[in-house]
Amino acid sequence: MPNDIPDEEVDRLYTELDAEAEAGGYHLNPDREFTRGLVCGLLVNRDRYGYIACPCRLATGRREDDLDIICPCDYRDPDLAEYGACYCALYVSADVKTGKREAEPVPERRPPRPERKKMREERESTSAAPSTLAYPVWRCRVCGYLCARNAPPEICPICRVPRERFERFM
């Protein structure tokens, strides 16, 4: 993968992601060379778009359209559970990491463009719906963490993604 990202920068983000992953019960792919390539792709995308869009998906550069594919993406956890790896294979399950299970090829779970647009519109209208609860319930779209409070936390305490990745759940 040709790029202008210095090795030290790739190593720095690799170490950071690895530490964060292990602290949260996630695991980077043990195939170090392959994983370094993906980390490098994340850095290319950070330079390009200002955020670490999935290296294996086409970002538009419009943050609101790309939110679901900013790493960790909205699809990582269901793919880890079903296939033992996320779509780009940056993250793998514990069984895959320890060699108890082989990662399977991961089909794209992200819906096609027209469906995404529809889902977003539905989400936005749900958020505006009145509720009889004392507090609204927010759901982290990445890891599923739920909390009942007036606004979502600044950073998800479980998977560390920012507030913008939360949706109104109830």
Binding site: M1, N3, G37, L38, V44, C56, R57, C88, A89
Partner: peptide
Amino acid sequence: ALSTCGWCA
């Protein structure tokens, strides 16, 4: 393909 993608490579 995507220039950043391991599977494309």
